[in-house]
């Protein structure tokens, strides 16, 4: 099955389907949200605090 691609090139030579996707992203309609405060808290806990705690426990053991 071919990749999605437009049949008609738009003015800046991007395929029409890609142009449609980029247009949606630029308007914000199709854009996903970056990490919010809650997910950053999880990243802090799982990626910084937990490793620091584990390292401390392992070193003191």
């Amino acid at each position: 099955m071919p990749a999605p691609r437009g049949k008609i090139a738009s003015s800046d030579s991007l395929p029409a389907e890609l142009e449609h996707r980029i247009g949606g992203l630029e308007s914000g309609r199709e854009c996903g949200d970056d990490f919010d405060a809650v997910s950053l808290c999880w990243l802090l806990v799982l990626g910084v605090l937990m490793p620091a705690g584990l390292l401390l426990i392992g070193w003191l053991a």
């Binding site: 992203l25 199709e30 854009c31 996903g32 949200d33 970056d34 990490f35 990243l43 799982l46 990626g47 910084v48 937990m50 490793p51 620091a52 584990l54 390292l55 426990i57 392992g58 053991a61």
Partner: peptide, 27 residues
């Protein structure tokens, strides 16, 4: 086990912070 787990979570955080935001925002 503890050193490897800590290192793995740190490595995972680096990867996620590096590629994650752009990949997630724009698919």
């Amino acid at each position: 086990s503890l050193a490897l787990t800590a290192g793995s979570m740190i490595g995972m955080l680096l990867v996620l912070l590096a590629a994650g935001p752009t990949c997630i925002r724009f698919g």
